[in-house]
Design a protein around this nucleic acid. Structure first.
Lengths: 352, 352
DNA sequence: GTTGCCCATGACAACGGTGTCAGAATCGTT
DNA sequence: AACGATTCTGACACCGTTGTCATGGGCAAC
């Protein structure tokens, strides 16, 4: 009675295997294997019969069983472990990685660890259990030493966005320290002295580095460093907004903000707008975002190049898998670009 | 000399199997299997020895081999095929799906088809070859009939964001027609007559539906429908911006815009700002985005609920896999929310 | 001291493919 | 006609795990 149920000539739920194909074609299973793998020494006559049987049964070989016996044991699948697949920066990298992978017949197993060190471990275990040929990791755990055993046994790993520690893994990333220093210097050059740094949790490599970069620029300019203007742990726009609010209410508030990533920038801008301070307080964000030019004032950023990072990471990973590149190496820095749009060019005079 | 190389007692590249564990523990392989699967009838003494051997060798069972023999044949992996993993709307759904999947020990194979019907086929083949237990698909091809054979053989599929056609697949999505109609009505209520619709390629289900919704609202209000105010095929912000620019230069330009998705909205806003018309032309976007409230004027949107769609889709998929829900069913609509922020409340008077 | 039962265990086949190898069929030489 | 070389083919073992089943030992009941 079900309208679209199959005509009944095909038993549903029946798995089609290479044996069914061989039987229908009247050959041995190995001959079927030869045909689908393009191995030589199959007569055209036989090959045609086999191919007919394959299409008739709509059979597709089981990649898992295939790789189980195959010499190289490749699964043609890579793992990707990011902070969150929904973060725009991460999603951009993801897309670039997928493009490289798809070109090489690879699929991508993607997951998120939410910058929780414990979840890096569990998510990685879930990935490794599926026997991927390589992993691209945005590290968050204090150490990646736990991967060393698998690396010694042939696992290929590349880190993105952040430096790993405790294991010999190459990484592709922006120079976070320089980026923060550029952002801070840009504000100093406009005459700001009291510059706040809003950044993420310090167990994230980029957050630590950005703090160093900020301090570099402040010290180089001979400016006093006020620890109360450095706020970490801002993992959501809400936390960033609340921190901005507090900063604006202290005795001698900052005249400029450096925001450590896209989410922090959004939270800070939201608060500045609520306090009607967006045209008085200068702001430079790290990470660009789609609508940065549409906000009033438009947001000046030190833009990273997420898709370039992703592409380079995937290229590196596959080169390592192919054996054309050693499985460890020095970190690779991808340039960042200062984009002046307005918010970073506000002088210190307006609010005081 | 390499600082972190292993002490050399472990031969690199050596695969550890259940046999190695069994040998070290002095038991049969089946006993090891019993221990890791929590099967009864293993003495505690033996179990401890086995567990010791496992940690000592750092062995992890091969999920592929495991599923090969297991009765149900589950891979505990699902496929996810979206327009693009980097689109904010899709990325949000992706994240919600991943959360549900991870909770159930499932991994997600994610890929993008860029709204290219041909790539839906190739990407799907890549996913199915890896023997996933289910697939969540944002359809783009004119028909999903090609999936019917696999569905009859036990494949579980759920569509998101769009209706499939040609196969009995349940779908979870917003009511795109109603959403567009709500957006249009909102503008009509403010007195607009000449309302433009900027939308995506019409082989995308949502784009077609949104056109219907727009027409519904216009007809219901008894307004004349000017086909030159309906522009489709806008797949990027650049195309949307250019189309907006053209619309603003025609004889009798529209006084309001309905934008069919997040990227279209961004392109249109960019053009309006460039022409300094953002406070004169009303605009309602479909899809919310992070910074919609920070733009001047803040963008009024009909917000979808991508994470709810993702969560429901994953719930549905797993219920179907578990057999607690039939593998086909009626589409499920997720509500949309009109959020008035300013851009949609501009009257028709200002520019004429 | 048997008998019967249950618990613990491992030998073996199986999953769906590929690698190895030996044998059959075809062909060209001498 | 006999030979070797080459092409084609399938039987069989194997990949790393789980399902099935037989076996042996311990223990309670008779």
């Amino acid at each position: 009675m079900t309208p679209l149920s199959p005509p009944g000539n095909e038993p549903p739920e029946a798995r089609v295997t290479i044996r069914d194909v061989a039987r229908l074609a009247g050959v041995g299973i190995k001959t079927v294997s030869r045909v689908i793998n393009g191995e030589p020494n199959v007569s055209e006559h036989t090959a045609v019969r086999v191919r007919q049987a394959i299409t008739q049964l709509r059979w597709e070989p089981d990649i898992r069983a295939r790789n189980l016996r195959r010499a190289d044991g490749r699964t043609h699948t890579i793992g990707l472990l990011l902070g969150s697949v929904s973060n725009p920066f991460a999603a951009e990298m993801h897309r670039a990685i997928e493009d490289v992978a798809a070109n090489r017949g690879y699929a991508v197993l993607a997951s998120s660890h939410d910058d929780d060190p414990a979840r890096e471990g569990t998510a990685m275990a879930a990935i490794l259990g599926r026997r991927v040929d390589g992993v691209i990791l945005m590290p968050i755990a204090a150490s990646q030493a736990y991967l060393q055993t698998d690396i010694d046994r042939g696992l290929t790993v590349v880190c993105v966005d952040r430096e790993p520690s405790g294991a010999l893994i190459p990484s592709i990333r922006s120079d976070a320290r320089v980026a923060a220093s550029v952002a801070t210097r840009h504000l100093i050059r406009r005459g700001h002295h009291r510059i706040a740094l809003l950044h993420d949790d310090e167990n994230i490599w980029t957050a630590r580095e950005r703090r160093y970069g900020y301090l570099d620029a402040m010290r180089f300019a001979g400016l006093e460093i006020d620890e109360s203007l450095i706020v970490g742990g801002l993992s959501t726009p809400e936390l960033s907004g609340a921190a901005s609010d507090r900063l604006m209410r202290i005795q001698d508030p900052p005249t400029a903000l450096v925001c450590g990533n896209n989410l922090i920038t959004i939270g800070a801008v939201r608060t500045l707008q609520r306090l009607s301070l967006q045209h008085d307080i200068a702001l430079v964000g790290i990470d660009d975002f789609d609508t940065a030019d549409l906000i009033a004032p438009p947001i000046t950023v030190v833009a990273q190049r997420p898709s370039q990072i992703g592409r380079l990471a995937a290229d590196q990973l596959f080169a390592m898998i192919d054996g054309t590149l050693p499985r460890s190496g020095p970190p690779i820095s991808v340039p960042t670009d200062l984009i002046e749009r307005g918010s970073g060019e506000i002088g210190p005079g307006s609010s005081d």
